[in-house]
Amino acid sequence: MKKVLLFVLILSAPVWAQKDISVGAFGGFNLPILQSDAGAGSDFGVKAKFSPIPMLAAAAFFESRTFGEASKEVGGVEHTIDGGNVTSFGVEGLIGNTGGGSGPHFYFFAGISSYKWTRDYWEDLTEVGFHIGPGFEMVFPAKIGLELRAKLEIVPTDGGGSRKNGIILVGANYHIGLM
């Protein structure tokens, strides 16, 4: 494991010294985990990231998501239910190669968000969510980066359970840079 981490750090050594500010937009898939009342949907959002030191960063984001219809066969009749929409905004911390500059950047992130799920005929589910995951970004000399992120989101609910989502995102960032 240490060798893998070392390899990643060496691979991205030229960008280590870069402090950075970046802004970006992303989109992807929203995949409910162990939720039979919601289907897979889409996810779009924007974010801004600040890296005051090369290995650590903080980001703020806003996401707008959908869930797909869920279906259930009852007495030979297929019933469906609308998945609804989610808005989520929050902050996250990043560790790894989080600075700017061209080259590959691999990092891990963890964050907290305000999660609001709206569905017809239901009370809105408004809770605090938590998420973790890995991310990878390839930044090109033109200061544009292409990014791939995988996120596991856990939203504890009132009854003692939780809603869990797997989210796969691809995005593009513009690196303004600090130095």
Partner: peptide, 15 residues
């Protein structure tokens, strides 16, 4: 346990 991670949401039908 605190976050209720080991839970799932499922649907049953009583016909």
């Amino acid at each position: 346990v605190a976050c209720g991670i080991a839970t799932g949401t499922f649907t049953i039908v009583y016909e």
